[in-house]
């Protein structure tokens, strides 16, 4: 893909230049974790959470926040803006392909998600004694598939939305649904059981993340659903994506 390397370098620079967005996308989950972690009662093991602390139990939902903010909020908005303002079109007149810009944005979204997740996991471990994921392989697979499913949904929004406003309008309900079922608004033990079960299958698959984090291997069905969503949304996005 001609121009990818140069575009990635410039886009990374623009990404780092936008400090407020950078801090809010990468720092917010850790900030919430810190606030909750400062409450002593939430650091006590509780039989309600299989003997874990609330902070441990809630950490995967904060990971959901990282993934959803970048994948569903930031990525489609950036791509739709680039399309609306003719950035993609202008690129199409040069030897570089606009797909190089899209790929660069995906790489940056991934980098943002990874940075956000790492910060969360490390702070949770060091400051609040949340153990590192006990099933590293299962956790990695759940994380990769969940991320892929969300980014694919984000790309689908970017593909069908003609304008930035339309992208935001489409992304907002998706954002709320994934956040809600991911247990980011209400901890999942407060949700009715069937609602929590739905959340097992909405991207990025919070139950699989929780299972792997606490040491059980994630259920294959949970992972398979994420893979199906990633492939279906990704393929539709590729088919529907408009460069102008």
């Amino acid at each position: 893909m001609h121009g990818f390397r140069q575009i990635l370098r410039i886009e990374a620079r623009l990404y780092l230049r936008d400090r407020p967005t950078l801090l809010s996308t990468i720092g917010v989950p850790t900030l919430i974790l810190t606030v909750l972690g400062l409450i002593p009662a939430l650091r006590e093991p509780d039989p309600k959470f299989d003997g874990q602390t609330f902070v441990s139990y809630f950490a995967p939902s904060l990971l959901v926040v990282s993934l959803v903010v970048v994948g569903v909020n930031t990525l489609p908005a950036v791509l739709a803006t680039y399309r609306e303002r003719g950035v993609l079109r202008r690129l199409a007149t040069t030897p570089a392909h606009p797909a190089a810009l899209l790929a660069a944005q995906l790489v940056l979204a991934l980098a943002g998600i990874l940075a956000s997740a790492l910060l969360l996991i490390v702070v949770a471990r060091l400051a609040f004694g949340v153990p590192l994921p006990r099933h590293p392989l299962g956790f990695t697979v759940a994380f990769v598939l969940g991320t892929a499913a969300l980014l694919a949904l984000g790309l689908l929004v970017a593909a069908v939305a003609r304008t930035t406003k339309a992208a935001q309008a489409l992304a907002a309900p998706l954002f709320m649904v994934t956040m809600f079922f991911g247990g980011a608004y209400l901890p999942r033990f407060l949700l009715p059981d069937f609602v929590a079960r739905i959340g097992d299958y909405t991207p990025p698959g919070v139950q699989a993340l929780l299972d792997a984090w606490t040491g059980t291997s994630p259920q294959p069905l949970h992972l398979a659903i994420m893979a199906v969503i990633a492939v279906a949304a990704g393929a539709s996005a590729a088919k529907l994506f408009r460069w102008e």
Binding site: Q6, R13, R17, R90, P95
Partner: peptide, 20 residues
């Protein structure tokens, strides 16, 4: 056809020059 808000003049030209 516009450009990203935060892209600077020299950056834009250097980027586009690199395609050719």
């Amino acid at each position: 056809s516009q450009l990203p808000d935060r892209l600077r003049v020299a950056e834009a030209l250097e980027l586009y020059a690199s395609f050719y």
